[in-house]
Simulated scan of single mutants.
Amino acid sequence: MKTLITLKIEKFEEKGQEYFVATSDQIQGLVAEGNTIEEVIDIVSDLAKILIELK
């Protein structure tokens, strides 16, 4: 079963390096960081499954 969640993805830059952080109001504790948007989405996919199972 697939569940759609809404993500808020923000772009940050620190010391010349950019990175992205994703959060969701729908899943408490969901915070993922990656170097690209694609990487963040991959991490969120795995993390969301774990957090949903822990509920």
Rank of each mutant, 00 (worst) to 15 (best):
Q17G: 01
K2T: 14
G34A: 09
N35S: 15
I5E: 06
Q28V: 13
S45L: 02
T36K: 08
L7Q: 14
Q17T: 09
V44A: 03
A32I: 10
L54G: 00
E14G: 04
E18Y: 06
I37A: 13
E38W: 08
Q26Y: 05
K55A: 00
K8T: 11
V44K: 02
Q28H: 10
L7F: 10
V31F: 01
V21W: 00
D25G: 14
Y19Q: 08
K11I: 07
F20Y: 14
S24E: 10
I9D: 06
E13C: 03
F20M: 01
N35L: 15
K11D: 06
E14A: 09
D46G: 14
V31E: 01
L47W: 00
E39M: 12
E18Q: 10
K8R: 13
L30R: 06
E38V: 14
A22H: 07
G16V: 09
I9S: 04
Y19V: 02
E53K: 04
L47I: 01
L47Y: 01
V31H: 03
F12D: 08
V21E: 02
D42L: 11
E18R: 09
D46N: 10
F20C: 03
F12T: 03
V40G: 05
V40A: 10
I27Q: 08
L54Y: 04
E53N: 00
V31T: 08
T36E: 12
K8P: 00
K55C: 00
M1P: 11
L4M: 11
E33Q: 15
E33T: 15
F12Q: 10
L51Q: 05
K15A: 13
S45C: 08
E10L: 07
E18P: 00
L4G: 04
A22N: 02
I43W: 04
K11C: 13
L51V: 04
D46M: 02
F12H: 14
M1V: 12
K8N: 13
E38D: 15
L30D: 05
G34P: 06
G29C: 03
I52W: 00
T3S: 02
I43E: 08
L7T: 12
G34D: 09
I5Y: 05
K15D: 15
L47N: 01
D46R: 14
E38M: 09
L54F: 01
I5Q: 05
V31P: 01
D25F: 05
I27P: 08
D25I: 02
D25K: 13
T36A: 11
S24G: 13
K2C: 06
D25L: 07
I41E: 15
K15H: 13
D46E: 14
V40M: 12
